[in-house]
Design a protein around this nucleic acid. Sequence first.
DNA 1: CCTCTAAATAGTAACGATTACTGTTATTAT
DNA 2: ATAATAACAGTAATCGTTACTATTTAGAGG
Lengths: 131, 131
Amino acid sequence: MILKHSKQRDAIKSFLMTRKDHPTADVVYTNVREEFPNISLGTVYRNLTLLSEIGEISRIRVGDGIDHFDADISLHYHFVCTHCGSVLDLNMESLSHINEIAGAGFDGKISGHVTYFYGTCPKCTSQELLS
Amino acid sequence: MILKHSKQRDAIKSFLMTRKDHPTADVVYTNVREEFPNISLGTVYRNLTLLSEIGEISRIRVGDGIDHFDADISLHYHFVCTHCGSVLDLNMESLSHINEIAGAGFDGKISGHVTYFYGTCPKCTSQELLS
DNA sequence: CCTCTAAATAGTAACGATTACTGTTATTAT
DNA sequence: ATAATAACAGTAATCGTTACTATTTAGAGG
């Protein structure tokens, strides 16, 4: 399948690059519609999937049942606020050593891990102090 | 809300305890139906949710979009085979130290993490050698 | 044991995120 | 310019899950 250029795909990628949070497909749809009022939700999904398959963006699953997307494909971990649901980046060292810990007592082959952290985000923590 | 006893809930819990893999709601439904042919899928979901809320079972999310359930509520990690999709238990030490690593450069409060490992399970590894 | 209240049920409808289908449009190689 | 086909918009369908409703059942109090 030869990839053809598309304005819609460019717009989706560009929008994602402007965001430091990790929008869902629906948020992408809502925002890209400002530039392309007729864009279809299917086009957004298809391109998000395509872009993540070719490694230009990454798909993040944090257990809320909704896929989030991130234009930052560098290795990093995520934090999910259990109060407001926001997804933030964590600036921390790689945890690749845990693959060896997991593999020690396991007969199969471990090729990676998925980790995210949860708790109260800075914004919600400061609001707790007020109440 | 006072909990009343229910045969269906018992059967769901009992079935889960017989399984070392981590069945989905649908698998629970199919199997419990052998004993209760009229049980409804809603009853299965409601009880799985209830049991996990009162801490008698745990709900496992491994990024395939389908909830898995586990009667083993002791702290342990899971492995997901990228070939066959099966979910296995890992016998390994706690990784609670990674919460401190994550919290070091973060202003919010980290209360825990979700981690699962992926790769090729023992069964699929041995089948690869044959081909 | 009988009665009453509310929890739990079966069956079905609705939901939300995502994917698939279809006929049309747009990109790009020739 | 033309032809081939990727990508599109619009819509229908899928799938896991949750919500609704009328009925049944558990179990506490008399």
